[in-house]
Amino acid sequence: MHSRRRTLLTAVLVMAVAAVVVGGVLVVADRNKTPVAQDDRGPVLVVPGYGGRMESLSLVISALKADGRDVVEVAPKAQGTGDMRGQAANLGRVARKTLRRTHAPSLDVVGYSEGGIVARLWVKKYGGDRIARRVLTIGSPHHGTELAARAQVEHPDRCPKACQQLAPDSDLMKDLNEGDETPSGPRFITVSSTTDAAVTPIGTAELTGALNLTVQELCPDALTQHTQLTSDPVVLALITSALGSGPPAKPTGVTCA
């Protein structure tokens, strides 16, 4: 009798372990069942930074259109100062609408400053990993910026929700950067400037697992500030080298300003 019980118990344990293993495999298989094709260029969503000024991205948008891309401008709620989780959910709605309109299998996202954080939130929390092909962030403080932390302390009445979330120790930043910073699905590209006084420390703009590039790698004498990034020749050259049909790469033949 005791032998039968031990045999039964062993069988149950084996089946339980097998179920866990199979379950794990099923989750992985489901996640990778339809990987995002990297050679099919779809539409591009452009997400502005804090303040929501789409005009600041006019040259980026022009470069994308000149490259033959279908460009969708994603106007943020509350001028980009509201909860970034809500902004990420809105980005998801625009993405789904865009895919229905274009019948494309995937799309790219270009996010400037806070817009890059919103894009990452969408990928990690709102299903963007299944439909985003490339995510290019321009001067985005992926691990928070000291500027927001100071504003929260020195001028709390002028630091709304998004400003608070951009502080390095915010709950949003901790949650966003827990685990894999570049989850499977899209390929990530970051570009920043070592002279950007708004995104500090400068390493905050980089992501583990991404193609990380600074303006100064190609133009050593550049003094590009945060508001100048979207017109910088290195950033504009990335439109084709990072968002083309081939693997993301550093641009070549850049004429430094």
Rank of each mutant, 00 (worst) to 15 (best):
R6T: 14
R6A: 08
A11M: 12
A11Q: 07
L13I: 15
V14E: 15
M15C: 15
V22I: 15
G24D: 09
V36M: 10
D40N: 03
L45Q: 07
Y50F: 15
G52N: 08
V60T: 12
I61T: 09
A63K: 00
L64C: 11
K65V: 05
K65F: 12
D67P: 13
G68N: 09
E73K: 15
V74S: 04
P76F: 04
A78H: 07
T81A: 12
R85C: 05
G92V: 13
R93I: 14
A95W: 01
R101Y: 14
H103A: 08
P105V: 14
S106Y: 04
S113Q: 11
L121S: 04
W122A: 00
W122Q: 00
D129W: 14
Q152N: 15
R158P: 05
C163I: 06
D171V: 00
L172W: 01
D175Y: 00
E181D: 10
E181N: 02
T190K: 09
T195H: 04
A198E: 08
A198W: 09
V199K: 01
I202G: 02
A205D: 01
A205N: 01
A210W: 08
N212E: 06
E217V: 10
E217D: 14
C219I: 07
C219G: 06
P220V: 15
V234Q: 04
A237F: 03
T240K: 02
T240W: 11
P248D: 11
G253E: 03
